[in-house]
Design a protein around this nucleic acid. Structure first.
Length: 485
RNA sequence: GGCGGUAUCGUCUAGGGGACUAGGACACGGCCCUCUCAAGGCUGGAACACGGGUUCGAAUCCCGUUACCGCUACCA
């Protein structure tokens, strides 16, 4: 009772970075395989030599690696299959489903322009298909360059799409497309079909910008005498303005989000919700749940708009849900990049740092937020945020005096622990006539300790800073308040 | 222009003839909690593109219109 062996592939062209749209396509392919069994293959479509770069290929590996979307088996480089592509094109010529076309690009461009001028739809007029064999032989003998064109048959081409149900194209609207260039290299549609056949792909799941390629590819499968795979066309991802996601929408590469401090799990979860819903109001899922719940029937037909705000929210959820100890590995490199501490230094006081992470992660949405908030705990001298000073240190002489009292109360403590601190400080607030409003004490203290108006609970801050540093920061704040009038 | 696709709150979506005075989430506002900021809880405003059918009954089915998107290369 072997499960049907699904074979899916993600086939990006290495001409830019791994886009969030591409990442989502990869994710759905991956989810399908994890859910229903089979193989998730990776094919780099590098036949456009002019635009393909090694750097882009690296970006694809890095992006997929960061997201944890591991593919099965060896990577296939389309450029390595040129001979087979050519052989398939020649097979088409042999079995009469394609013909040689001697029209030059210049001629074609001219005719296209002429058609556009009269507002007509341009379609290749098949003139080279009407050449008789003697003429063809003569041109061949004269070494005239030619392309191989596929002869689109009569009728209509349709398929049952996994997300769109039935889609049909009248063949009369499809022109006799080129499959092999004059230099003998294959055109996209041929290369894809040749490779998908060779890789025994059973389900082609890709962006719906490929819908109009699909009838051509189906025609190619038939002409090559091969069984069709299934097709699933995923909706596009658009920017906030409803247009196709592009550079001017800001961060669109997966790597951008990695560097912005987004967790891969959050990215995946967010992407999964763009164009798919598990139903039942489920949103935040573990990877296992996502696999368990994945169902192509829940795939959306409509393009989705990428909302960075919701991604951040999702990331906040993940930050909150991830144990601080696990976060360590992701935060440590960012700490080093920010110049706050090296991973070695952090490791030396791992327990302390994990405790700090526990306090910070709940109020952060990105790793960058965590780093920002962690800063006061790593600097010898802190900066006072002007807004915080303005708000909490209004009356500077009085604040200085207040902080001296606070310092004395804290310095008098036997043990440096929250309960004792709270008791002492609340008693002090009482003595100073603040009554229940101990916040009047805590807030100026917070600024003295962190330089900021917002932080974790004040006793947690005191504990994380430790006795000596807390007291010296109070001294520094008092000095600062007295000097700068 | 031609062909194809799509159409539920600002955004992501639930919904697959009656359960819909249309549910959840993000964002926005209010309240609670509270030493601040978050988190959390409660709460408010906010949508079935339009027009025809089909039906006892349409967000759900059909047709048309409109809008938007994609393709229209010897790019992928």
């Amino acid at each position: 009772m072997p499960a049907p062996q699904h074979r899916l592939r993600f086939a990006p062209s290495p001409t830019g970075y791994l886009h969030v749209g591409g990442a989502r396509t990869a994710l759905f392919n991956w989810l399908f395989v994890k859910k229903f069994g089979g193989q998730f293959l990776l094919r780099i479509e590098d036949t456009d030599k002019a635009r393909s770069t090694d750097e882009s290929t690296r970006a694809i590996y890095d992006g997929l690696g960061w997201l944890g979307l591991q593919w099965d088996g060896e990577v296939v480089y389309q450029g390595g299959n040129l001979e087979r592509h050519r052989a398939d094109a020649l097979r088409l010529l042999d079995n009469g489903t394609a013909y040689r076309c001697f029209c030059t690009q210049a001629e074609l461009a001219e005719r296209r322009a002429a058609a556009e001028a009269t507002n007509e739809a341009f379609k290749y007029d098949r003139r080279c298909d009407r050449l008789d064999s003697a003429e063809i032989a003569q041109r061949l003998a004269a070494d005239m360059p030619f392309v191989v064109r596929f002869r689109v048959p009569e009728g209509s081409t349709q398929w049952v799409d996994l997300v769109h149900d039935e889609i049909a194209f009248p063949n009369k609207d499809i022109e006799d497309f080129i499959v092999l260039r004059t230099d003998g290299t294959p055109i996209y549609n041929l290369a894809v079909v040749s490779d998908d056949i060779a890789m025994a792909i059973t389900l082609v799941m890709r962006g719906d910008d490929h819908i109009s390629n699909t009838p051509k590819q189906i025609l190619l499968y038939r002409a090559l005498g091969r069984a069709l795979p299934q097709f699933a066309h995923l909706p596009m991802i658009h920017g906030l303005d409803g247009k196709k996601l592009s550079k001017r929408h800001g961060a669109t590469a997966v790597g951008d989000y990695q560097h912005l401090g987004i967790l891969p799990g959050a990215m995946l979860n967010f992407l999964a919700l763009l164009g798919w819903s598990p139903g039942n109001d489920v949103e935040v899922m573990t990877m296992d749940q996502m696999i368990e719940l994945f169902d192509p029937a829940g795939l959306q037909k409509k393009a989705a708009i990428f909302d960075p705000k919701k991604l951040e929210w999702m990331n906040g959820q993940y930050l909150n849900l991830t144990p601080a100890d696990e976060l360590f590995a992701r935060v440590a490199p960012a700490m080093e990049a920010a110049g706050l501490a090296t991973p070695t230094e952090l490791d030396a006081r791992r327990e302390w740092f994990v405790a700090l992470l526990d306090l910070l992660k709940v109020r952060a949405r990105t790793i960058d937020d965590v780093i920002r908030q962690a800063t006061p705990y790593f600097r010898g001298v802190i900066e006072y945020d002007p807004d915080a000073e303005a708000k909490q240190w209004k009356d500077r002489p009085a604040t200085a005096e207040l902080l001296v009292h606070v310092r004395d109360s804290l310095a008098a403590l036997d043990r440096w622990e929250p309960a004792a601190m709270e008791e002492a400080l609340r008693a002090l607030a009482e003595r100073l006539g603040f009554g229940e409003k101990a916040g009047k004490l805590f807030q100026p203290l917070r600024v003295a300790l962190t330089g900021l108006a917002a932080s974790p609970g004040i006793f947690d801050v005191l504990v994380m800073l430790g006795r000596d540093r807390s007291l010296s920061r109070l001294d520094a704040a008092v000095a600062h308040l007295r000097i700068t009038v």
